[in-house]
Simulated assay, not measured.
Amino acid sequence: MDVVLPCLDEAEALPWVLTRMPAGYRPIVVDNGSTDGSAEVAAAHGARVVREPRPGFGAACHAGLLAASTEIVCFMDADASLDPRGLPLVADPVAAGESDLVLGRRVATTAGAWPVHARLGNAVLARHLRRAAGVRVRDLGPMRACRRAALLDLELADRRFGYPLEMVLRAAGAGWRVTETDVAYLPRAGRSKVTGTVRGTLRAVADMRAVLRQAQQTTISA
């Protein structure tokens, strides 16, 4: 089963992440312009490395999706905030036909693992998602799994931080069964470029709100 790991300067975290991949899970590290040797570290630890020069979280995710070849594909962050050993929690329900998209609901293992500003921003977006699409999720968790061909059919367009939200919105609109399961959320390795800073969190929230507005406008016009 292929695992897409968007990566921007995660050389410090990658050894831990890649050595904890469960048997049968193949990491695809999508280097999104790293300057710290992340691609070389990933290759040295047996990962397939795909380079995506276009900046953006969604661009990296999409490049990994195109590079994947397994029926079911997983996504997760490469910063050691998520333990790869939890991947079966999101992948198994899809493989068993019990769900079409499974999100890993983050449960912080320490007080500092999930900063308050990031947690609040996520909660607001999850509430909007429940209202806009009727999807009963509490977290837009970055560890997730679904069927590759079905995801490609959704034709996700966002290439920034709105990609995870657009995936859920389009999946719900297509009648997918969207569920979530608890996964441990750990303090990330190195300095966070998004949730660890207020500016990064606000940028991600702004991208996701733009996706929500577009979805609402599309619904109204339809």
Rank of each mutant, 00 (worst) to 15 (best):
D9L: 00
V124Y: 08
V49R: 05
A184T: 09
A11R: 11
R147Q: 12
Y25M: 15
Q214H: 12
R213C: 05
C61K: 12
V50R: 00
V107R: 15
A96R: 08
G24M: 10
Q217R: 11
D83Q: 07
N122Y: 00
T201Q: 14
R105W: 03
F161C: 07
V135H: 09
R177P: 12
G64R: 01
A133M: 13
D79W: 00
V94K: 01
G24V: 12
V168P: 00
C61Q: 10
L186E: 10
K193I: 06
V194C: 11
T218D: 06
R199W: 05
S81E: 06
L212Q: 11
R199G: 10
V29S: 09
D153G: 15
T19P: 06
G121C: 14
P15M: 08
S221P: 00
S38R: 04
T218L: 13
A145V: 05
A132F: 03
D92P: 11
L125Q: 10
L87R: 03
H62Y: 15
I72L: 12
M167W: 00
L152M: 14
A96V: 00
P55C: 10
A43H: 05
P93G: 10
A108V: 07
E12I: 05
R147K: 13
A78C: 10
D2G: 05
A44Q: 13
R170F: 00
L202E: 07
V4H: 02
V49Q: 04
M21E: 05
L151N: 07
R131K: 13
A184C: 06
Y185V: 00
A126G: 12
E52H: 07
E40W: 02
Q214M: 05
V30H: 02
T70E: 13
A118M: 07
L152K: 10
R170S: 10
S38M: 08
S192L: 01
A132V: 15
L82S: 04
A113N: 03
G175Y: 12
E166H: 06
E40G: 05
V90T: 03
A149G: 01
R51T: 15
T201A: 11
N122E: 12
A60V: 08
R26F: 07
K193Y: 06
G97Q: 11
T179I: 04
R191L: 14
V135Y: 08
L101F: 02
